[in-house]
Design a protein around this nucleic acid. Structure first.
Lengths: 99, 99
DNA sequence: CCATTTCTTGCATAATTGTGCAAAGATGCA
DNA sequence: TGCATCTTTGCACAATTATGCAAGAAATGG
């Protein structure tokens, strides 16, 4: 019961990290491999500060990891299960036709 | 490219519906089968209006469906893939230990 | 040390979300 | 019709989120 609640909190936390189109896009880009943070700025058309915060949100949720390479920070998916999760969400996103 | 954006919007919409512990709990309860809306009130300890809104949110995302049975409304999962999605999220929720 | 590039943080602001109470709707039954 | 039960909606309020600008921090190279 208590663990149920914790479970649902953590699941909701992960889902919250996915609950934004920009962050979904970031993850799907990272499916292609490691990327420098600055690469996302032109790709997403957002301020660097905004990109930084989205990446931090994904990191807090445990979905991405980073390493520094000189001035740059390189980002990658933190878990090989993430593509499966994205496919799962896409399947439901396409299936949904609520009336 | 355009479809990419639509895709990410819809994925984020579905994720947004999952981005709340109460709604995750509702879905996991519905994994056990159809339930009357009023059953959730004592289970979740929330006002009936709040329960109604959470169910409406899940319905808008295409995750649950309902049918009326007299004065009651019975709810069920709208897609058999939802348990798989929940297991996927749980796996990531447990795996995450961000430092 | 200074300049450059990349990244993060501190505001401020607009928009969204979660909640409960009260009231209104919907349905069935006496 | 009137009542009881279940559900939804209108309103208000607190909390959270997304965004951009400006400023600061980190690393590199001259």
């Amino acid at each position: 019961m208590q663990e149920r609640i914790m479970d649902e909190l953590r699941v909701a936390e992960v889902a919250k990290a996915l609950a934004n189109p920009v962050r979904v896009r970031i993850l799907s880009i990272l499916e292609g491999g490691e990327r420098c943070g600055c690469e996302f700025v032109p790709l997403l058309g957002l301020d660097p500060s905004v990109v930084s915060r989205h990446l931090a949100t994904l990191q807090r949720a445990g979905l991405v990891e980073s390493r520094r390479d000189g001035v740059r920070v390189l980002w990658r998916l933190a878990n090989p299960e993430i593509p499966r999760l994205l496919r799962c969400l896409e399947a439901l996103a396409c299936a949904e036709v609520p009336t």
